[in-house]
Amino acid sequence: MTDTQVGRSPFDPARDTTFKRELVTLIPHLRAFARTLTGDATAADDLAQDAMMKAWDARASFQLGTNMKAWTFMILRNQFYSEKRRSWRQSQLDQDAAERTLVAVDDPEAPVALDELRLGLGMLPAEQREALILVGAGGFAYEEAAAICGCAVGTVKSRVSRARRALQAILEAGAYDRDGRSASDAMGSILADAERLSSQR
């Protein structure tokens, strides 16, 4: 394995190849994380591509063998928030995101409960949503999520637990405000679906 000098590695094709191979395997995960941040498939792919290129350009500063997934997620997240800061109009995101997400669902046959979960997620404060996604769906440890979000481990833990409680309350109360569907429907279909999925494993 190539020895690397952090921050100032010379042109090194072998190392680049290794880096690139690993980066490519992360693209699907970057797309998924971006989708949860933007709530929009097209914007998400733009964001994921930007993050991928930022990671590529910064490859010399990455220590091969350390956690590239967490590193690229951190880049993507920083990219997202710096873009958001630039177009500050998007700051009323939470409610709007919920609406856009509904439109952005690509597969019309996707189970209804997923739509409701997306809407519910869209209603959480951004920092709770991302913490829950990273830990609950992205498979990151609290410590990794904390590094990605640039906050303390305890902060991530409390965000995740608040997000879980809030999301459950939203789903049970039907507070996501979807034309006329009742609350028990949403939670009921989520429970039924989860049961079906876990019995398949």
Binding site: A32, L114, L117, A137, L171, L191, D193, A194, S198
Partner: peptide, 12 residues
């Protein structure tokens, strides 16, 4: 159940 759906949404 919410956890399962969350992972499903992401994995999709």
């Amino acid at each position: 159940a919410i956890g399962v759906k969350l992972r499903q949404m992401f994995d999709e």
